[in-house]
């Protein structure tokens, strides 16, 4: 069995998780604790990847990240290379696709923080940034961990968006889900079986961990 797609999947999931958690934490803090006009429009936009078929999202990303798209052109003028069919390209696509899965558990963790704790921090002279770093984050660690695990698992399972934006370039964009699809198409069932089996226990164990970290799930058990 070729282990490179598995390695690429794990690398993609790890990079996307780190970037998404770093981006989703301040975004969620902003959505929970600040008032602004049009917030519901922003939230709906963030959640769009949940309801859109991955191929539709992948198609739009393909257009936007392509040589004639805004993001693709900006990337090209700064780095002198293309985003499509590269590892960086599928990282960007994963971030867009998994953003709601990072924001939702984090928002729910931030909403569980007693608002009076935040008020107390304000009274004690903390700036909004200091409140985020010294009060909100340390008191939401379980929610952040749950968010990280969900993003990691969701990225490992991505198929449609990756295929549209990255294709199937060995060592670059051919992740495990695409390798399994290709193995089945080529009737190499043994490879498909082995790679699928490798993903199942990892995903199952991580989901168990999410359940342990999420109070709502624990209460319902």
């Amino acid at each position: 069995m070729d282990l490179l797609p598995l390695y690429l999947s794990l690398k993609l999931a790890a990079v996307s998780t780190v970037v998404l958690i770093a981006a989703a934490a301040p975004l969620s803090y902003f959505l929970v604790f600040f008032r602004m006009p049009g917030k519901s429009f922003v939230e709906a936009l963030i959640n769009l990847p949940i309801v859109l078929p991955p191929t539709v999202l992948g198609f739009y990303l393909l257009v936007v990240m392509g040589p004639k798209g805004g993001v693709g052109q900006a990337w090209g003028s700064v780095f002198g290379s293309t985003l499509l069919f590269t590892f960086t390209g599928i990282v960007v696509a994963s971030i867009v696709y998994s953003l709601p899965f990072a924001v939702a558990p984090m928002k729910s963790a931030f909403l569980r923080i007693d608002p009076r704790l935040v008020e107390n921090a304000q009274v004690l002279g903390l700036t909004p940034t200091a409140i985020f770093l010294r009060v909100v984050l340390p008191n939401s660690l379980a929610g952040i961990a749950a968010s990280a695990i969900l993003v990691f698992l969701h990225t490992i399972g991505e198929f449609g968006v990756i295929l549209m934006v990255g294709g199937s370039i060995p060592g670059e964009t051919k992740v495990a889900s695409i390798a399994i699809y290709e193995a089945v198409e080529a009737l190499r069932y043994r490879d498909a079986w082995l790679m699928s089996l490798a993903l199942v226990p990892v995903s199952y164990l991580f989901l168990l961990l999410v359940n342990r970290l999420t109070p709502e799930v624990r209460r319902g058990a």
Binding site: D114, R116, L117, E119, N120, Q122, V123, G125, V135, P138
Partner: peptide, 15 residues
């Protein structure tokens, strides 16, 4: 945060 006040809340608000 700039008012320099001490505020004791009705319920416990320790971190």
């Amino acid at each position: 945060r700039k008012r320099g006040i001490g505020y004791v809340f009705q319920e416990f608000t320790l971190f």
